[in-house]
Design a protein around this nucleic acid. Structure first.
Length: 993
RNA sequence: GCGCCGGUAGCUCAGCUGGUUAGAGCACACGCCUGAUAAGCGUGAGGUCGGCGGUUCGAGUCCGCCCCGGCGCACCA
């Protein structure tokens, strides 16, 4: 009988792996099928039911904006949330996931208006416009919902929260009412960031700094008066040609916003800085002129303006300028020099153009110095016209626009006015120098147009207000301090988030919560039609809240059905307003106020969540430190007395392969459902779980495809495990832990270590650390070590032998653990893995209903050390074997045998690990060779490279190979019936062949 | 300008409180197996650990300065 025919003869007696679990996942096809099944079998609801009564763990969803596609960034965010929820669910918590959408706001209104030709048609009612906006928002809710589902995110998709629902709106108003009654709300005239393009005030979080180029101008403001006791007067009078000096004397100011010059009402100087009175000639003129500026800046200015014959006539302190007045260079109004501590000598001239209508600091200075507030700019960023402009500029009645300044400015957009003003200043000789300056400047986050500062009357939340309610605020702290206290009590992941948001809270100004748009929740305030007096109190607010809860916020805009008299009948009005004609005020809430109220509208109002406030976690991109986290914190601490979340997890932004932020216009961002269709949701999820999300995350098809290697390795490792369980029924065949072979117990010990490591990483939300551990486990511990060594036992030992059942028990436990540890990430693949896993009857039908594995005290340090040594030996042996393979001496490991020569210490170490015969047999198995002998060394031995006290020799094994197991054990043919088999195989085969 | 984070093999990253010859995966090269097979196993090459200086018996690890990248704050007039 030839070897070949023997091979055929015994082939069927070898227990080769067998499984239907496909090597190729076919995710693109399989995932939609599974999602359909989840929906049909109501998997989410079943999970909820299974956890009913368990301790709650709530991740409260931050609402994405209902506009555009769900792209990689939002997709990643939802994936991370889903992973956390599934992890907590498997840990046994009741972890509902209620998704929501942010449906109001400018971007939606903007897009709707765009379709209407850029602005609301005159014949269209506000109600109609709002209807269009609602339709628009709802259509994107539907679209994004479908997109998020393709990523495999489970949740209460059929009942999400929407910021447009009447209940949500009413609770936003309740937050406002609470703030109002606690004294946090004020309506005041202050300078705010104003987007003229969006025609609305903007909050800090709605600004983006972008680079732009502006004109930097140095302008002469002619000195026109000087008080009697003015020191500066004395300085000038001491000079010879005082008369000439007065005639040509100016204060030199600097600005990069020439359009604010018409609103100039003062020049601010520093009291302590040194100023100089200078004589000079301009580059192109022989006329001698005089000016005042900070001494430290004279050199720079002279050089820039190319001044000639510059002479310092006098040096004095800024304080000496007290009492100096100037005439506005083109409005001819009389203005003073004032002092401010923010005047620095780093740029400009040390004399600061001050326009309280257009700057925060200027406004404060103006308030202190009782300066007029001039703001001649309308909502659209254009100069007022006609009488309104003259009035706002507070011009003298006698002022005649003979030089044409007003005519030039009227109706002009501020940015377009810049060059006009510069040119006219130049033409009239006021301009000493100009040059373009590149700087970053705040822009409107939606329109990307530069914003301006504009004084308007707005609603604010006072961040430094002290809530007098002792129950809430026993120590009488400011809201700002209470926010900082709550931040310190919250767990931040990564930890630096705490510093970041603390710094923001420490520095932030009061929050301007009013916007002048249509698409939002109205600020429910009334005013007397005649006097403008505000009509708001607890009673009016409560009344409107009720109406909004019943009918939605459209009641505010539906003048036909809800005239003021009906909206606010006399019985709910404060006494002094009964019977008076009132008007509804037109402001709406900043959308951040809405989303920031979700703790109230959702966590405290949704029947499923109401008893679970505060949420365990908020999880968003790290830009939300200044966005949702901050506004949620402010509103919750002010009205509930505590933070709405216990943990706050952030991820960095999605970028492309060049590290650039994703944006639709760049085309480096794609809809998440398309990615899932092309690549597979599990692969995308695997990628998100594998990267460090605390640093910018590159997301491209090629990177995700490259991550497929890791995914496939996990999949194939699992496949190898279950392939060997085709005849294994855990109920009947599982071997008790104590009877398992050492290698199998070692594998379980390693598994227990991985469970601990992975669990710890998940508890820190370091998903990539967990995935790394799992990959290494699959690649090294399982694939290269455990599975490789177990092959002979599983394929060749008798089917029901202890040694084979022992290995199968190990495989079964590990396959089960692997599936569970991967469940939060590979939500689809694990369903198929679960189906191929032998399971006890009556257990969970889906891994999503299963429990997170526990390490269960199976770590065995002695076994770990034993096999660590064995595998080191294997590495030594492999090195030699490889050399012999390259020399064509051997092929497989069974063609060789190994002789080990330990020194005294190593010999003792080995002796401790087992009796010689058993030990060498075990080593032969681990090393995958035909035999191992322990000798005293001699010719042909070489020292091990990484093990001290050991030398080894590998020899070609010439003994015949067993036709069935390929091993050259030396007892082939010992049983006549099976002349080509080794003793073990002959016994196993017995009468069967 | 201030602050935070990062700079380790071609790529993606591990390297805890300083301690033998700096690790893993991918990719690459070479080889084995053909009984995990559009798989599996092995071996190998590849690193002045951003630069300079310091502390120390010893520094990828601690300190200082500098360079590069990212982010945040502020850039005001």
């Amino acid at each position: 009988m030839t070897d070949k025919s023997d091979k055929n003869r015994y082939k069927d007696t070898v227990l080769l792996p067998k499984t239907d679990f496909p090597m190729k996942a076919g995710l693109q096809q399989r995932e939609p099928e599974l999602q359909k099944k989840w929906a049909e079998t109501r998997l989410y609801e079943r999970i909820r039911a299974a956890r009913k009564g368990a301790p709650a763990w709530v991740l409260h969803d931050g609402p994405p904006y209902a506009n555009g596609d769900a792209h990689t960034g939002t997709g990643m965010n939802k994936t991370l949330k889903d992973m956390v929820v599934k992890f907590r669910t498997m840990q046994g918590f009741d972890s509902p996931y209620v998704p929501g959408w942010d449906c109001h706001g400018l971007p939606i209104e903007h897009n709707v208006l765009k379709d209407l030709g850029g602005k609301k048609p005159d014949n269209m009612t506000s109600v109609k416009l709002r209807e269009l906006c609602l339709d628009y928002a709802n259509s994107y809710v539907d679209k994004q919902r479908a997109q998020f589902k393709t990523v495999g995110v489970l949740g209460r998709w059929e009942h999400p929260y929407l910021t447009t629902s009447p209940v949500y709106e009413a609770n936003v108003l309740r937050v406002f009412a609470d703030l109002f009654s606690r004294g946090f709300i004020t309506r005041a005239k202050r300078p705010v960031h104003w987007s003229w393009a969006a025609q609305s005030a903007l909050a800090e979080a709605e600004l983006e700094y972008e680079d732009r180029t502006d004109p930097s101008v140095f302008v002469r403001f002619p000195v026109s008066s000087c008080g009697k006791d003015c020191k500066f007067r004395e300085h000038v009078e001491e000079l010879d040609n005082a008369g000439d000096i007065w005639d040509t004397l100016a204060l030199l100011i600097w600005t990069t916003t020439p359009w604010t010059l018409p609103a100039n009402v003062a020049v601010a100087a520093s009291t302590d800085a040194e100023y100089v009175l200078v004589a000079y000639k301009r580059a192109t003129s022989e006329r001698l002129e005089h000016m005042v500026l900070a001494g430290a800046l004279l050199k720079t200015v002279s050089e820039k303006a190319k001044l000639r014959e510059v002479r310092v006539l006098k040096t004095f302190l800024g304080a000496d300028l007290k009492g100096v007045g100037y005439s506005h260079p083109f409005l001819e109004t009389a203005c003073p020099v004032v002092f401010a501590d923010y005047v620095t000598l780093s740029d400009g001239t040390g004399l600061v153009h001050t326009a309280p209508g257009h700057g925060k600091e200027d406004f404060e200075t103006g308030k202190r110095e009782k300066l007029p507030v001039v703001c001649p700019i309308d909502e659209a960023g254009k100069f007022f016209t006609g009488e309104r402009l003259r009035k706002e500029l507070q011009l003298a009645p006698t002022f005649e626009d003979s030089r044409g300044w007003l005519a030039m400015l009227e109706g002009q957009n501020v940015l377009k006015a810049n060059p006009l003003i510069v040119e006219k200043l130049r033409a009239e000789g006021w301009l000493l120098h100009d040059e373009p300056v590149h700087h970053s400047y705040p822009h409107c986050w939606r329109t990307h147009q530069p914003v301006i500062f504009r004084v308007t009357e707005q609603w604010f939340i006072k961040i430094d207000h002290v809530d007098p309610d002792k129950a809430f605020n026993p120590e009488g702290k400011t809201l700002r301090q209470r926010l900082l206290d709550e931040i310190a009590r919250t767990q931040w992941f990564p930890a630096w988030g705490e510093k970041r948001i603390s710094a923001m809270i420490e520095n932030r100004p009061d929050w301007c919560i009013s916007r002048q748009r249509f698409w939002g929740i109205p600020i429910p305030a009334f005013a007397d039609a005649q006097s403008g007096e505000l009509c708001v109190d607890a009673s009016t607010l409560a009344h409107v809240v009720k109406l909004v809860e019943q009918h939605g916020s459209n009641v505010w805009y539906d003048d036909a059905n809800w005239p003021v008299e009906k909206l606010l009948p006399d019985e709910v009005r404060p006494k002094q307003f009964k019977g008076r004609k009132l008007v509804k005020m037109n402001d709406i809430f900043d959308v951040w106020f809405e989303s920031g109220s979700s703790h109230r509208s959702v966590m405290l109002a949704d029947p499923e969540l109401a008893d679970k406030f505060p949420a365990n976690m908020y999880l968003e991109g790290d830009d939300q430190h200044r966005g949702w986290f901050q506004v949620s914190l402010i509103l919750s601490v002010a009205t509930q007395g505590k933070s709405p979340f216990k943990q706050c997890l952030t991820s960095a932004f999605v970028v492309d392969e060049n590290g650039e932020k994703g944006s639709k216009s760049k085309g480096n961002i794609w809809a998440i459902d398309k990615g899932c269709a092309d690549l597979g949701a599990d692969l995308i999820r695997y990628y998100f779980a594998s990267v460090n999300t605390s640093e910018p995350i590159p997301v491209t098809y090629s990177l995700i495809q490259a991550a497929g290697e890791g995914y496939r390795k996990l999949r194939n490792t699992f496949r190898a495990l279950v392939g060997n369980l085709f005849d294994f029924d855990p109920v009947k065949d599982a071997v008790a832990y104590d009877r398992l072979l050492p290698l199998d117990r070692w594998a379980l010990s390693q598994t227990a270590r991985v469970i601990s490591e992975v669990t710890a990483a998940w508890e820190r939300y370091e998903f990539h650390t967990a995935m790394r551990a799992l990959n290494e486990f699959a690649n090294v511990t399982l694939s290269s070590q455990y599975i490789d060594v177990c092959k002979d036992r599983l394929y060749c030992e008798a089917a029901t032998s202890l040694s084979r059942r022992s290995a199968q028990t190990g495989y079964w436990v590990i396959a089960d653990v692997l599936t569970r540890l991967l469940t939060p990430v590979l939500v689809h693949s694990v369903e198929d893995m679960w189906q191929h896993l032998p399971r006890e009857a009556g257990g969970p039908e889906s891994p999503h209903l299963a429990a997170w594995p526990k390490a269960e005290g199976r770590v065995d340090a002695a076994l770990d050390a034993r096999f660590e040594l064995f595998f080191k030996l294997k590495a030594e042996c492999d090195r030699v074997l490889d050399r012999m393979r390259k020399d064509k001496q051997i092929g497989k490991g069974y063609d060789a045998m190994v002789a080990l020569a330990p020194d005294e210490s190593m010999a003792k170490q080995l002796a401790d690990l087992g009796q010689a015969t058993a030990l060498t047999a075990e080593l032969a198995e681990v090393l995958n060779v035909s035999g191992v002998a322990i000798q005293s060394g001699g010719e042909g031995f070489e020292d091990a490279a990484t093990l001290k006290g050991l030398s080894l020799r590998v020899d070609v094994c010439n003994r015949p190979a067993c036709a069935r197991c390929y091993r050259r054990t030396g007892n082939v043919g010992s049983i006549t019936r099976h002349a080509t088999l080794c003793g073990r195989c002959a016994e196993v085969v017995g009468e069967r062949a």
